[in-house]
Structures are given as C-alpha cells and as structure tokens.
Design a protein around this nucleic acid. Structure first.
Length: 627
DNA sequence: TGACAACCTG
DNA sequence: CAGGTTGTCA
C-alpha cells in the first residue's frame, strides 16, 4: 500500500491537520465534488444516476474524510473531481490513513474489504447502469471504479450495504417501467425518500462509529476533535445532499405540474397565468381588487368602500382585542400597505384627468359571502382597514348592493369642470405617480407579526411589500396623516387632548404631539391660503356682494380643498365643512374688500373667528383601526 | 420664558 | 410637509 499521496498537501502531523479546521481547507471534496456544481448541468437523462453516483461517492468521501481527515486532504478529492480514473485510483489506493489517526481500523479492514468492495462496486455499477440506462452509465461506473473506501468499520460497512440493498430494490422495479413524467416524478420521490433514509442511517452509524472509537482510542483529545470534525463534515454533506435532492425533486415536480397544466390548457381550460394563480376564492377576490386598482383613481376610490363591507368582522376583531388587552394590543392594527405601482401610466391616465369621477365601476365583491380569515387578512393586506370610513357614508348606503356604492360619490357630485388653473396640475400625467401612491396611502412599516408575514409569504399575491405593525406605533405613519387630514374637515384647531383621543394607536410623546400639531398647522396654512386666493379672485371677478360667494361641492375651492385633504376622494366631506369654508371665504372677502389686508396681522381676526367653528370629530375616528 | 401659531423656506 | 423663524401671550 502506497502511503504517499499523489498530492503533496498531506499533513504528516495530525496536529497540523486538525489545525486546518476550516471546512474549505479541510474538505474540498464536499465543496467541489458533491453538490456545489449545479444540477442543471446534468443531462436530464442522467440526473438520477448522477445523484446516485454522488450519493455513493459522497458516502465514500465521508468515510474517507472520517478516517483520512489528516492524511487525505484537499488534493485527494480535488483530483477525484477531475474524473481522472487513473489518478483517482491511485489516489484512493494511495490514500493511506495517517496511522496516528486510523489506528486499529485500516489494518483490520484491508483484506476483507477487497472482496467487499468488489461486490459493492459491482452492485453500484449495476444500479447505475440500470437506472440511468444511458450511454453515460458506463462512464459513471468507471468513475466509481476506485471505490476503495476500505477504511470503514464493520458496522458502517454493513449499514452501508444494507442501505444500498434497500435502495436498490425499488429502483430496479421502477426503472423497469419507462413511463411518462409523473412516473418519473414518482420515482424521484421514492429515491429521495430512500436517500433520506440512507442519510439518517449513515448519520446514526457515524455517530456510533465515533462513539466506538471514542472508547477504543487512548488519545482522547485527538479523537474528540476527530469526532467533531467528522460530525461537522457529515452535517455539511447531509445538507448538501438534501439541498441537491430537494432541488432535483422540486424541478421534477415543477416539470410535472407544467405538463399537467399544458394538458389542461390544451383541453379547453385555457386559463391565463393570473387566473391560474388566483384560482382560489380569496385570490379571485384579490384579482378583482387588482383589476380595480388598474383602473386608476376611480377604482381607488372604491377600495375604501369595499373595505367597509369586509370590515365589520376585522374591525370587531381588532377592537375586541384591544379592549381585552389594552396594553398588548392597543396595537389594534394600524395596518398599512403599499401596493407596487404595477399599473401602466397609460391605463390610469384617463381617470387622473378626471379626478372626481361620477360613475364608479361596480364592485366585484360579494358582500354577502362570509369571509374567511384568510380573505380578511388578504383584504387587509391589500387595502388596509380603512373601512371605518363607512360611518361617514350616507346611512342609506346598502352595502350589499353593488350599485349602491355609487351613492356617496354621487352625493359629492363633483362634475369635472376642470377649467381652473387650480386643478390644472392634477390633470397632468406627470402627477400620476404621486397621486396614485398617495391614494394607496401607504408606508413601509416593519412587519412585526410573524404569522401574518408567513401567511403573506405563502401567497405570492400577498407578498406585495406587505407591511404590518400591530404594536402601538412609535411614530406617525402616512395613514395617520391621512386620518389627520380627514379630521381637519371637522376641526381646524384640535387640542392635544383631541389628538390623543383620536390617535389611540400612537404612542404620544412631545415629538409626536408636535408633529401632529404641525400637521394641522400646515393644514390650516393651506386652507387659509386657498381662502385668501379665492377671496381675491372673487374680488377680481367683480363680485360685489358677499352673499354671491358660496361654497358647494361643485365649487373649485372645495375641489382644491378636497384634493388636499381627501385626495383619494374616499371620504364624504361633512356639510359643516362647506359652511365653515364659506364663512371663512366671506371673512377673507370682507377683510380684503375693506382693505384690512394692509394690516400685517389682518388675518388674526379671521383666525379668531374660524377657530370657533370647530365641530366634534365623529366617534368613528377614535378607533385605531380607522387607519 | 415656554408654548403656540403663523410665517417663510426648501 | 418639515424645519426654522418670528410674534404673541400667559
């Protein structure tokens, strides 16, 4: 037996070997030989044989790595990787264990192993030929020819032999049938199972071997380290094998599925890809939402109305949770979703040009259908729980009637009289992006609900940048901003107490409070700027009587305000706001008409009037799930 | 002097 | 919309 390795990387010192405890250095065979090379590189016909070969090879390498860890190093396996038969043979035969390490093992097994290996090799070659049934099989057999891992223990060898027996039997049977893809898929599955069994048994055997050696050898420290290294090797190898098998199985299954679908498609069930993906009820629900979203702002306006139909259960759920555990679940679902801007600009542009659509596309929802949790979840994921807008809708709304959803928008009755320069910029396609995103309203918030996240991950249609935060918000989100804007329709000067009351899901601190106050300050700023602008415009237009100035939902002033505070146009602005706006406009008109605007602080008197016109914010705004 | 609101700016 | 500044007021 040639104790010299072809490669000179062999460590003569076991200590030196063990210092090379980095896997990449120590076990290049696993890195290069086993499964690191892509399976796709194999021809489909030889995949199974390749897998098997590698499994066998792997096993042998494991044995070698166990016993030759110090002596048979990178070069050894590296040469094997070159599929050089001669060098392989010489390598394996030359690869002698470091006597220090393999004491009592190699000497015991050398001669008996010869016969055993002959038999085993014959069996393996036979397996491969039969399984692969390809011209490559002989080559594979040649590659495996130097199967000379004779340094195994008896136990390991027996285990290996038995495992191969178990593995072989069904394979012969399987390959006697050359069936269609599903059969091949089935075979692959069985092979996978058998290989996994083999792996488990190997693992057990190795542990037994290591334990046995642990008792036999005096150099306890050395052996312990060997055991650890070997175990790590085995772990890595197992993972590689598992990954390879999973990949292969997955690929085979995918092929089967593809073929089945092709057949299905060819037989008349010609589903579009999206339909295939959305074949479940909740997915259909989602699809309708997607379709609406593709219709642009128009559809966006419906979404919130839709939500109200779904909301009752989800809202109730979250509210009850909050009541039961106010500390842990104040959290009551401040949920926001940002949908990717998948809609082509061209498909949305028409609706952008008409920011206040009169007619809405009927809902696709069937409101009377009981919703499963997954549906609710999906709905929440998709649209967010904005359905508290429902209380703001006219009470006559019949949510079960698809047509009735038009009602709130008809009440707004904002015909598109886009002639004003004030609205002109909204009609520009360039504003589409922000408008669309803002309608979606939705921030990225870290997912903090693992279960929901995992659910979302399982559904490709739910993994659209889904964001949750079910805990009390540490900061203000765009949803909070939207809510604040809607609150502005009721209160222009909210007190901090009001803010705290109506933002229960916000963890208030000085910063948060200031930010909220700042928001309303900004709202007021815009509000008063608009008032002054329209008041001056009225004067320029020659309006002499303040009574001729009114603010209705058709007014351009209202449109401008609505676009600012209710951009999605999904909220029914209370009539009181129109009254307040009209009063404010009158104040400005009167002040400007009487030249009070020459006074630097002429607006203060107006502010003093307007601040008294606040009305109560509806109770519905209090719930944190309003967002 | 701190709080608040308006104002200015980017 | 946010940051900074200014003015007012208790």
């Amino acid at each position: 037996m040639n104790l010299s390795l072809p490669d000179q990387n062999m460590h003569n010192s076991s200590e030196g070997c063990l210092e090379d405890d980095k896997p990449d250095v120590m076990l290049p065979c696993f890195r290069r030989n086993m499964y690191d090379e892509p399976l796709a590189s194999y021809s489909s016909g030889s995949i199974i044989s390749q897998l098997l070969r590698k499994t066998i090879h792997n096993k042998r390498a494991l044995d070698e790595s166990h016993f030759y860890l110090c002596g048979s190093t990178a070069a050894d396996s590296g040469q094997e990787d070159q599929s050089s038969v001669s060098s392989k043979d010489s390598t394996v035969e030359a690869a002698s264990p470091n006597p220090h390490v393999s004491t009592g093992v190699s000497s015991e097994g050398e001669h008996p192993m010869t016969d055993h290996l002959q038999a085993k090799r014959a069996r393996v070659e036979n397996i491969i030929r039969v399984m692969a049934g390809s011209p490559n099989s002989r080559q594979h057999g040649d590659i495996e020819k130097p199967d000379t891992d004779v340094r195994d223990t008896r136990e390991a060898r027996e285990a290996y032999r038995e495992n191969k027996r178990k593995q072989r039997l069904p394979q012969h049977q399987e390959h006697s049938v050359s069936g269609p893809v599903n059969e091949e898929c089935h075979k692959l599955k069985e092979q996978l199972h058998s290989m996994q069994r083999l792996l488990r048994q190997l693992q057990e055997k190795f542990l037994q071997v290591y334990n046995q050696e642990d008792r036999e050898h005096d150099d306890r420290d050395e052996i312990d380290r060997m055991k650890i290294v070997g175990y790590l090797v085995h772990q890595r190898e197992s993972q590689n094998l598992q990954e390879a098998l999973k990949q292969e199985l997955s690929r085979a299954v995918n092929e089967c599925v593809d073929r089945v679908f092709k057949k299905v498609s060819s037989t008349g069930l010609d589903l579009s890809p999206q339909q295939r993906m959305c074949s479940t009820p909740e997915m259909q629900l989602n699809t309708s939402g997607d379709r609406k979203s593709q219709q642009g702002n128009c559809a966006q306006e419906q979404l919130h109305s839709e939500e109200s139909a779904v909301k009752p259960r989800s809202l109730e759920y979250y509210e009850s949770s909050e009541a039961q555990s106010p500390q842990d679940q104040t959290e009551a679902l401040s949920l926001v979703v940002r949908k990717p801007a998948v809609t082509p600009l061209s498909s949305v542009t028409p609706t952008v040009k008409r920011p206040y659509p009169v007619h809405q596309t009927p809902f696709q929802f069937n409101y009377s259908t009981p919703l499963h949790d997954s549906q609710i979840l999906e709905h929440l994921l998709k649209y967010g729980p904005h359905s508290n807008f429902l209380p703001c809708m006219p009470p006559s709304m019949d949510r079960t009637s698809p047509d009735s959803v038009d009602l709130p928008w008809d009440t707004i009755a904002m015909r598109s009289k886009v002639t004003s320069s004030h609205l002109g910029h909204h009609a520009r396609p360039s504003t589409l992006g922000p408008v669309t995103v803002d309608n979606l309203c939705l921030p990225h918030v870290k997912i903090e609900c693992g279960e929901l996240q995992s659910m979302a991950e399982r559904s490709p249609y739910m993994s659209l940048n889904i964001s949750f935060h079910l805990k009390r918000s540490e900061g203000l989100t765009p949803s909070h901003l939207k809510k604040a804007k809607l609150m502005f329709f009721y209160t222009r000067y909210p007190s901090s107490n009001v803010l705290k009351t109506f933002f229960p899901d916000v963890k208030f601190n000085r910063c948060i409070t200031s930010q909220l106050i700042k928001w309303f300050s900004n709202f007021r700023e815009f509000y008063y700027i608009q008032m002054e602008k329209f008041a001056r415009q009225a004067i320029v237009d020659g309006i002499s009587d303040v009574k001729d100035i009114t603010v209705s939902r058709d007014s351009e002033l209202f449109r401008a305000l609505n676009m600012h505070y209710n951009k999605a146009n999904d909220f029914h602005v209370p009539d009181r706001f129109l009254e307040v706006a009209e009063i404010t406009l009158h104040e400005f008109y009167n002040a400007i008409s009487s030249a009070k605007d020459s006074d630097p602080s002429w607006k203060k008197a107006i502010y003093k009037v307007i601040c008294k016109l606040d009305s109560d914010v509806p109770e519905e705004f209090k719930t944190s799930s309003y967002l």
